[in-house]
Design a protein around this nucleic acid. Structure first.
Length: 467
RNA sequence: GGCGCGGUGGCAGAGUGGCUAUGCAGCGGAUUGCAAAUCCGUGUACACCGGUUCGACUCCGGUCCGUGCCUCCA
């Protein structure tokens, strides 16, 4: 069995992965704030951790994957003020869209998808614990985490407290004892969402929700905590501070999560994705033009820790690979999978186990596809071998999350009249070919090409597909 | 200013102290009535300058360039 190694942001080294409990591997990844359609960066996070989860599931009997929905946040309040829609309408709408879009990308639902607003009690409890241990204080309706009370602060991002203060560009609020202190709880106005608490009507700060939800659903410490690289500071740093200090582990940064995994950023055609540049790329829109598995392939075509430039060319290359896989499955249509073969291609699995090296895995996938193609065209290869190869390929696409075999080639609705027309022309063309009237045969090919129909001749007769 | 990351062949993108990455594109060939697909062959790649070494693209130091975070952000 291949052994998994992962780059741990906390130690800044690639380490052999050792689960705390071999019978239940537990991981948490910070999910989206639901105030808009998911963008391609959200999708990268979801796809990366889905793939990691799939790899873990092949290695361990049980995996518990928790990824949250942030449904209380100032950005949501802002969206509410802009659109006039109730908060719940906004969060429910975009949670649903997020889950649908991610499902299109082959992202399996997390085992648990907790929402911040249903964990307010757990957050208040942690805040109370922090106050009791002198790590937090109430001031002016706020509760703040007192950073100087946690000397190990900054260990994840490699940033000392002094550096943070020196680099701070925001004005320090007067109620803070220390400029680095951050909000655990803040007061809400009457028109803002809020909950009653020992410190009055208010709402949680951003970081506390992940501390509360991960502890509740996974227990501390757990194996892997993930998220986008930009969350390293301050979000994850503050999560560590809250969780370690609330549980009395002030000297051990890994008392919260053992391994920290961060995925790199996505740029769009070489530029940073931002609203001001107008290149905010939404998954919902890309799905109009490309099938989900193709988008997934494109997202995994660079190593997860490296920056990924989202380009048209990358998508087209992903489409090529996707078609190649679909073609091979098509050629193996008559072959039944061998149920005794339960594992993926060893080289692909090994690549994935090496810190989730998906580009290397795709290289091995290409090798596998060539091997199968050769086997198909070689009449000496026994049927049994083909069944085994099909199973290996199927299992490999499953672990990569590219359910191409289930989806087939993207079925575009072609109306019946056109379909009949195509069949008629193809019959005519076959007859023309038989009569060696190649001029007419080519004419028909051109005609159909113009309508976006590509003819593929096979020994069994002509096939066609939409281009 | 502080803390990080990276510079690989036309493009994308892995990797390694000495041994083919891979894909796309290109070129030559096989196959095909023509196509498509596939197969075979084909490219003095590792930013620059020093150092360590029998040997470095791979390790160390410096230079240049690019880029992320430090403020809501996946």
């Amino acid at each position: 069995m291949a052994a998994l190694t992962l780059f741990n942001s906390l130690t800044r080294k690639k380490e052999a992965f050792e689960p705390l409990d071999k019978n239940n591997v537990r991981l948490y990844a910070c999910g989206p704030t639901v105030y808009n359609y998911a963008h391609i960066g959200n999708a990268r996070m979801a796809v990366v951790f889905d793939t990691l989860t799939r790899v873990l599931r092949t290695l361990y009997p049980k995996v518990t994957y928790v990824s949250n929905i942030t449904d209380v946040d100032d950005k949501i309040i802002a969206a509410h003020r802009e659109t006039g829609q109730p908060i719940e309408t906004i969060t429910e709408k975009y949670t649903k869209i997020y889950n649908e879009d991610m499902a299109s990308l082959g992202v399996a639902p997390p085992d648990i998808q907790p929402r911040a607003t249903t964990h307010i009690g757990e957050m208040i409890k942690i805040i109370e614990d922090l106050i009791a241990r002198d790590h937090a204080y109430a001031a002016d309706g706020h509760v703040l985490f007192h950073v100087p009370s946690f000397p190990a602060y900054g260990g994840l991002s490699g940033r000392s407290r002094d550096e943070q203060i020196a680099g701070a560009r925001v004005e320090v609020a007067s109620y803070k004892k220390d400029p680095a202190d951050f909000v655990l709880w803040k007061p809400s106005g009457a028109d803002e969402p809020g909950w009653d608490s020992p410190w009055g009507y208010g709402r949680p700060g951003w970081h506390i929700e992940c501390s509360a939800m991960s502890a509740k659903h996974l227990g501390l410490p757990f194996d892997i905590h993930g998220g986008g690289a930009d969350l390293k500071f301050p979000h994850h740093e503050n999560e560590i501070a809250q969780s370690c200090c609330a549980s009395g582990h002030e000297d051990d940064l890994s008392a919260f999560a053992k391994v920290w995994v961060h995925n790199g950023f996505v740029t769009v055609e070489g530029e940073k994705m931002s609203k001001s540049l107008g290149n905010f790329t939404l998954v919902h829109d890309i799905l109009e033009d490309y099938p989900g598995p193709v988008i997934r392939l494109a997202l995994l075509s660079a190593h997860y820790r490296k920056p990924l430039d989202w380009t048209q060319k990358r998508l087209q290359e992903a489409q090529r690979l996707s078609e190649k896989i679909a073609d091979i499955f098509g050629a193996l249509d008559a072959i039944e999978c061998d149920p005794s073969v339960t594992s993926a291609d060893a080289d692909i699995l090994a690549a994935l186990c090496d810190d989730l090296n998906t580009p290397l895995a795709f290289s091995k996938l290409n090798t596998l596809l060539s091997k199968i193609d050769l086997a198909i065209t070689n009449p000496k290869i026994p049927h049994k071998t083909l069944a085994e190869l099909k199973s290996i390929l199927y299992n490999s696409t499953q672990i990569l999350g590219i359910g191409i075999v289930d989806q087939g080639v993207k079925e575009e609705a072609v109306d019946e009249a056109l379909q009949t027309e195509i069949e008629k022309l193809l019959t005519e063309r076959t007859a023309a070919k038989a009569a060696k009237n190649f001029a007419r045969a080519d004419e028909i090919r051109d005609e159909l090409n113009k309508q976006g129909i590509e003819i593929i001749d096979t020994p069994e007769g002509p096939n066609w597909r939409k281009t």
